[in-house]
Write a protein that binds this DNA or RNA. Structure first.
Lengths: 213, 213
DNA sequence: CCGCATGCTGAACAGATGTTTAGCATGCTG
DNA sequence: CAGCATGCTAAACATCTGTTCAGCATGCGG
């Protein structure tokens, strides 16, 4: 009775959003199937039944998280397409959203798949513009390059745990850690990695051998 | 003595290994926690109890899979360090092993983490050699570059599902699909992506702004 | 032949999980 | 005030989970 009033006044957010945020954090950190409805409820400071009361089922909660995250990513500065727009917004989003998105791509939810496709599409156009404007090198396979590029932007997101371990940043905040690896990535994008065509030729040799048998 | 060894290897084909292979496929395809012991047993054509009889627990099974996969990846042509060695072996390994490895890196198992660290270490040395030999560009942050490079090699592995959807390969076998995206990656590594330093400078601007506040 | 290890099974168990149900308190509306 | 919707809960439920247990068949060594 009085405890209810107290809890309510303690939270300046509605119950629904509190639950969704708790789910977002836990899903992103642990993965959807490793998190129980009761754990989410406990983190949100409510009962497990209320979670289901609001979202119908755990699957409903997951879809709500998906929708929220996709909205966060898509709802960014849409006109700002001369930058990576969507992805940039994503990387600017909160850590919880970022982690959740990384998991979502791996869990293969339909919403995440659609988002991935859209990002690839936008990236391909963005790279095309760059090629026309002269600040992006042309490619032998623009579509594949765009797709690979997107997976590479996503990679530090899903392998963040390993990057953090391999690139100790002391007590620097997480953003600085991200900056270090992103800087290394941009360096590769700008200068290239291999100084000659040796590896490219080696690849062609493999392709030829495979094609012949 | 001999008979025991013989029988063991024979039973490896029939029993233990059949279970391990079934677990490997299911773990790789679905993720460890989404797969039940009973599902593994069903796929291997045995009872659930036998799975536990052989591996003690589900965790024991997972560790056996980890050990097997790590052995597969590490056991490649070790002397052949002038190539990407470990990673090359991994990419040559069977599809099930590859998928499992991708999951393992995400599930954060200690074995996978150690393997990741080793791969980064070997890659950094390999890139150093390349720089000395002149066929790799020097870097401002060799360690970060090696780490990012490894995550990029791993990315198509974990995002394979999305790549397949975005890069339809008709009825071509999976290896050809892999070849298409790897070719695009090597192209970036060889020619670079950005034709000028614009993005690199933009990054430095961001860093500066962040550092100032 | 006996004994016994080995590979294997069905049945059962304890715990966790998602979900449902019945109901309480509050606050708004007629 | 009565009535009703809302936000919320505890408890029970059914199912699924990993795991254990008692026992069956087979084959080998004594």
């Amino acid at each position: 009775m009085f405890s209810m009033l107290f809890m309510r006044s303690e939270s300046d957010v509605t119950g629904r959003a509190r639950i969704r945020n708790a789910a977002l954090e836990l899903f992103g950190a642990e993965g959807v199937n490793r998190v129980s409805v009761r754990a989410i409820a406990a983190r949100a400071g409510v009962s497990a039944a209320l979670v289901l009361h609001h979202f119908g089922s755990k699957e409903g909660l997951r879809k709500a998280c998906d929708a929220y995250v996709v909205e966060q990513v898509r709802g960014g500065p849409e006109a700002d397409l001369d930058d990576v727009s969507g992805l940039a917004a994503m990387l600017e989003a909160g850590s919880a959203v970022r982690l959740y998105l990384g998991r979502a791509f791996l869990d293969g939810t339909p919403e995440a798949a659609a988002l991935f496709d859209d990002i690839v599409e936008a990236t391909e156009r963005w790279l095309e513009d760059g090629v026309r404007a002269g600040w992006v090198h042309p490619s032998d396979d623009p579509r594949a390059r765009a797709a690979v590029y997107v997976t590479w932007l996503l990679a530090p997101l899903t392998f963040g745990e390993h990057l953090a371990r391999v690139l100790p940043a002391g007590d620097l905040p997480e953003t600085d850690r991200t900056l270090r690896s992103s800087r290394a990535g941009i360096e590769i994008f700008t200068r290239g990695l291999f100084a000659d065509d040796r590896v490219l030729h080696a690849w062609d040799a493999v392709r030829k051998e495979r094609g012949s048998r």
